[in-house]
Every structure is written in structure tokens, then in C-alpha cells.
Design a protein around this nucleic acid. Structure first.
Lengths: 361, 361
DNA sequence: AGAAGATGGGAGAGCGTTTTCCAAGCCGAT
DNA sequence: ATCGGCTTGGAAAACGCTCTCCCATCTTCT
């Protein structure tokens, strides 16, 4: 049956000109060598360099050859990609973490993919599965997320799905999951940070310290609240649920929350806030009620976002190493650093002007 | 010569088990159909669905088949990627623009690549060429950059290089280049924004209005300075170089710059700043010198970054539609919107408390 | 009942690389 | 002069997919 071993070239024209971008075959043809030789010459993987190598290089330059990274990736030798998946791209912590990741991915010759889930489970799942199809080297799931069985089951599903194609899943900015100790997860010391903040307030003489929490049940606020609780406990104080407020994570909501809170009646002299944004809102609300910060009420935030040092008063807050966290996550994603158990980066209390001794009664 | 048309399968074992992730061939084999049928069935490109389609779907589910996005991309049917290339990833404008781009790329089923050049020409070039190899659909070069022939030549080089592989170059957040009207470039109205700021100050009664510029010659500060000049001219005033300062784009530098500036001697009552960061630094410096804002000197910024509304006094500034700019750039990148000449999005003056009538002399 | 049309599915080329295997060619050594 | 080792380069398989022919059915019309 095989009467014509050489196929009749159905599509391409007989002339030397081809459509589209030139290909390694074109380079080889022009240089008068085989594609194998051309590939070897261009990738520098050949034993020695000979005249044909130079012909290949010249041919490549002449026709403007651009190697196809997609094809290289398919052969397992291209750049791999790492995905940065977060709920939202705004917010003070995002950019710093992303830049940390970017630093190590590009240093390693890899690509950084950016995805947003808009806090939708469906989009999160779609994103992960899409990334799996793209054969990403790793997926960084960053930011706070819900706690609970349903969530852990979802992460387990993602981890399995990704492992199936040799991609690893890394949880970034959230604590390790009890049921999934093998999933790499790195976080910073929320608890210690807030504990330090509370200790600072206690040392200043505060005894009645309120807390403003987020109105969502996710890992970050939960941990920070634990820091509050432990901080109080360390000073021999108990959590009084009546002076724990909840709000959304933006300035306006926090301000509105403070507006309708009978704090004076409770004798509160200090307020620990789950984030800087909430702290700023709280400060605005206090001010609106004619209360001075820190004269009447001290305020502490968390994140040390840009500009909080320039507020009046400058905000006392907890600084977390977002950039380092991102860089470390990137290194683990690329396999440059092994993941051995949970990683928790230290945080640091930055004392500024929004905290002071309570007014003498 | 062709005695053995069927090659002797050198590598893979004879058993049904294969290493690595399952393949479309594996699915087809299990379903008892050809790869062509399997491909059609899974991609839903077949006219109707038949029993074999269901067998294929079942087989795919059974062995956990994950289509290879890289291979699909190589065939020209996969997700394409759009690259967001900026100097730095920090800064107030970055996240908003990136999120705008992300919104439209993922809506269109595409991938967003994130790259940083660290303001190094070499890295910029490497990035562009790497993206070209990756066959990105488009490259968004975002942020301010140097002006001048050398720069335009570089952009021309990039545009040509990218066009060679069918990728388009989009300049985002900088004005169109005179020598390259065909490369898509979108910007927002720096000039109009600063003009409005100056007009606002003039209307308040200011006549001696200083300016703090950046110490770099790039498009953004140049345009904003032009807005300053035109704003003064519209009020019949001239630029007095003695009250034009230069600083780096961070709070500390701006503060230091203000510290050694004889502004009182010059009778300055208002200061227009090239960015919010500089404005905050200026405010800090003024305050340090015992001057009140806006009592002694009014201050205007540009960018309306997060928290400037919560400073004391709240900063009067110019707001630019960064998110929309990013989204529009994304749409042009994806070819959803045609680029017809320069695009300039409007800006808006946001009057807050850092500007007031000059003190009566 | 036979032919025309519709339709599902298979074989195989093609995408642009890398890489393995193997045939030459060339050198010095026996 | 011939043989083993070494370099050099080519043919072709492989990666995993899509897509264009085709052929074999099945339906349906005359």
C-alpha cells in the first residue's frame, strides 16, 4: 500500500516562503543542515562548535527565528509557570507578596501567572482546574479563607487534582490545615503580633481593651482574635464579648460600626483592630464621636500598610513580612526550598502615636 | 526501503499502564475509539452526542484525564496569555490597573502574566523577548518611562519584535509616541488633572503656587508639569523655576526636599505635587517646619491613593481611573476593542481639606 | 429495492520542539 | 592497511493535541 513514502505535502506551497513565524525547520533548511543540528546548535547543547553551527546562527538571525516557548514547554524544557491566586488584587498586602513571588520566579527563569477568584468558590475551582490544564508548576493560594471541614475538603481536592499533573499547591498567608499536613502552607505570626499589641496596651496601663473583628469566619481574623484572647489572658484578663465588635474590612464599615457602639459606657480605653483599614475606620468613628485618639482611646491596627505612619496620630500597628513571605512561597513553589512542616514568619509591633497611657480617671 | 511501516514502539512498555499523566490516546484506548473521536467528544465539537461520546467521557473521568493546555495552545486553540509588564509592582496605581486587566483577560478565558523590569533596560528587553518566545498575545508596558529618541527606538524595536510573532504591544499609562502612532497607547489626562488642581487653587485666591516635580525625566511627571504650567498660564501666571522643586517619588525624599526649601521667603501659599506620595512628604516637611496645611500652605496631590482621604487634613488630589485604564488596555490587548488613535481617559479633581484660601496677609 | 444524502468515526498529517539512535567520517594506533 | 574510538550530523520518534480528509454506515427518497 505504501506506494508514496513521501507524503504529497498537502497544504504548504512549494516555494521557499512559508506563512507565519519561521520555524526551526526553516532555519535548518536555510543553513543546509537538519533540524536536529539546528536545535543543537541554537541551544548550545552540542559538543563543540563547528562551521555549521555558525551557519545555523546566521540563518536564524537572517530569517528572524524565534524559538517557540510553548513547544519547548511541551517537551518539558521550557519555562514553567507559577500561579498567584488571590481573592482580590487590591488591598495593602497583595502587591508586596506578589512582588516577592515575582522576584524569585523570574530569577529562576519562570513565569508568574496572576489570577483572581473574587472570593467565589466556583471561580476558585475553575481557576485551579484551568491552571492544572496549563500545567503550572505550582499554585499559590494566597490570603485568608474560610475555616472548616468544607474548606479543607476543597483544598484536599485541589491538592489531589494538582498533584495528578505534578503541580504543587501552596497555601500562603494562612495556617496549615490540620487534616492536610503535607500541603505546604506558610503564614506569619498573627497571634504573636496581636499578643504583642495587647501586651503593649497592658503595659501602658489599659485594662479595658476592646476588639474589632471581621464579620467573616476566616483564618486570618480568627488567628488575630486568638492573639487578642491570649494577650488578654497573659495579663490575667478575660474576653468580654460585649466589647468585641464585627465589621467588614473597609474604612466606611468600620466607621459605621463604631458610630453605634456604646464604648464609653463600657469604659473602653483601647481598641485592637483586626486590620489597619478597620483601625482607620475606627479612628474616624471615634473622632466623629468627639473622642481623641489616643487621648481617650488608643487604637492598634495590623498590616502596617502604606501611609498609616502618616496619619494623625500615626497608627501603632503590627508589621508582617509580606514580601519575604511571597519570596519564600515562590522558592517552595519552585522546589528551591523544601517544605518541612508549617512555616510561620515573625511579625513585629510598630509602636507609633495612636497608643498612649489611658487618661487618668 | 520501507519494509517496516509500523515502527517498533521503542520506549513505552507493552502493558496498558503508562507513566505520567494520562493522555488523550489513553482515553481513546480505554473507550475503544480513536483519538480523533475522543478529541471531538471531549471538546464538544461533535455534531451530536452518541454512545461513544459517553464512553469517552466515562473513560476520561475514570483515568483522570486532564487536557494539556500547552498542547492546545500550540495548536492555536488554547488560552492565550497577556503580559503585564511594569517597572515595579508596588505603588498605589499598580494593583488597580492590574486588576482591571485581570478582569477582562480572565473573562475572555485568557491568562495574565506578571513581569517586573525593576526599571532596568536590560531586564525590560529580556522580558519582552522572553514573552515573545512564549507567544504572548499581547504585552502591556505599563507606567511612566523615559522620553526621548533612545526610548522611542527601543519601543519601536519591541513593537517590531512582537509583531513578528503576531503579538501586539500596548503602552499603558503613558502618552502615544510621536514616531509610533500605530502602537496602541492609552493614558489618562495628567494635564487636565493638574490644570484643574491649579485652577482650584487660583479660584481660592492663591497666586504664588509652587510645584514639586520628580527628579526623573519621564512621561508622567513631564505631563503633570505641563498641566501645572498650563494651569498657571490660564490664570495669567508664569512658571517661576525658583519655586519648582524636584524629589524622588517617596515620602521621605519629599520631606527632606521641603526641609531645605526657602518657601516662606518666596511667599508660597500653595504647593502642587506630582504624586500623592510626594504630597504627603511635603505635608510632613511643612508640618515639621511649623507650617499648617492648609492654613499656611495648601497642598494638592495626584493619584488619590488609599488613605489619603483619611490624613489630617484629607488630601485634595486628582483621581485617575486606573482600573478602567487597565480594563480598556486588556480589551485592546485581546482585540475586543479596536485602537483608533490615542486614548486619554478623564481625570477628576477631588477637593478635600488640604486646600483652602490663603491666609490674609 | 436501489440510489442519494446524511452522519459518525478512523487514519494520519501537522504544530515546533527535543532527543535518541545510528550511520558516516576521521583520527591515530597496531 | 585495517581497526577501534571519537566526533558530527541526520532520520525519526516523541510530546499531546486538533483537524482535514475519507470511508463505512444508516436513513430516506423514488
Amino acid at each position: 500500500m505504501s506506494d508514496a513514502p513521501s507524503a504529497p505535502r498537502p497544504a504548504s506551497a512549494p516555494g521557499p516562503e512559508r506563512l507565519g513565524t519561521p520555524n526551526l525547520g526553516d532555519v535548518a533548511r536555510l543553513a543546509g543542515v537538519s533540524v536536529a543540528t539546528a536545535s543543537r546548535a541554537l541551544s548550545g547543547r552540542a559538543p563543540t562548535r563547528t562551521s555549521s553551527h555558525e551557519r545555523v546562527a546566521a540563518a536564524a538571525a537572517e530569517i528572524g527565528y524565534v524559538p517557540n516557548g510553548l513547544a519547548r514547554s511541551m517537551m518539558g524544557v521550557g519555562r514553567r509557570s507559577v500561579a498567584f491566586v488571590s481573592g482580590e488584587m487590591v488591598g495593602p498586602t497583595f502587591a508586596a507578596m506578589a512582588s516577592g513571588v515575582e522576584e524569585v520566579t523570574t530569577a529562576g527563569g519562570h513565569l508568574l501567572l496572576l489570577c483572581t477568584t473574587h472570593s467565589s468558590v466556583q471561580r476558585e475551582r475553575e481557576t485551579i482546574y484551568s491552571l492544572r490544564e496549563q500545567r503550572a508548576a505550582a499554585v499559590l493560594l494566597v490570603g485568608s479563607t474560610p475555616v472548616g471541614e468544607e474548606f479543607e475538603a476543597r483544598i484536599a481536592e485541589y491538592a489531589d487534582a494538582l498533584e495528578m499533573v505534578g503541580a504543587r499547591l501552596i497555601l500562603c498567608g494562612r495556617p496549615p490545615l490540620a487534616s492536610l499536613p503535607h500541603v505546604a502552607s506558610l503564614d506569619y505570626d498573627h497571634v504573636g503580633g496581636v499578643r504583642a499589641a495587647v501586651a503593649h496596651l497592658v503595659e501602658l496601663g489599659h485594662r479595658r481593651i476592646g476588639y474589632i473583628d471581621l464579620d467573616e469566619e476566616s483564618s486570618t481574623p480568627l488567628q488575630r482574635f486568638r492573639g487578642y484572647r491570649e494577650g488578654l489572658a497573659a495579663a490575667g484578663l478575660d474576653v468580654d464579648e460585649r466589647i468585641v465588635l464585627r465589621t467588614a474590612n473597609d474604612i466606611e464599615s468600620a466607621e459605621a460600626t463604631i458610630a453605634e457602639f456604646p464604648l464609653i459606657d463600657e469604659g473602653i480605653t483601647a481598641l485592637v483592630c483586626v486590620t489597619d483599614l478597620v483601625a482607620v475606620g475606627a479612628r474616624n468613628g471615634l473622632r466623629r464621636r468627639g473622642l481623641d485618639v489616643p487621648g481617650d482611646v488608643s487604637v492598634v491596627g495590623f498590616d502596617d500598610m502604606l501611609l498609616v505612619a502618616d496619619l494623625t496620630p500615626p497608627l501603632t500597628t503590627v508589621r508582617a513580612p509580606f514580601h519575604e513571605l511571597g519570596a519564600l512561597a515562590g522558592r517552595i513553589a519552585l522546589g528551591q526550598t523544601a517544605f518541612e512542616g508549617a512555616i510561620e514568619l515573625p511579625t513585629e509591633l510598630v509602636v507609633r502615636g495612636s497608643t498612649a497611657q489611658p487618661a487618668s480617671r
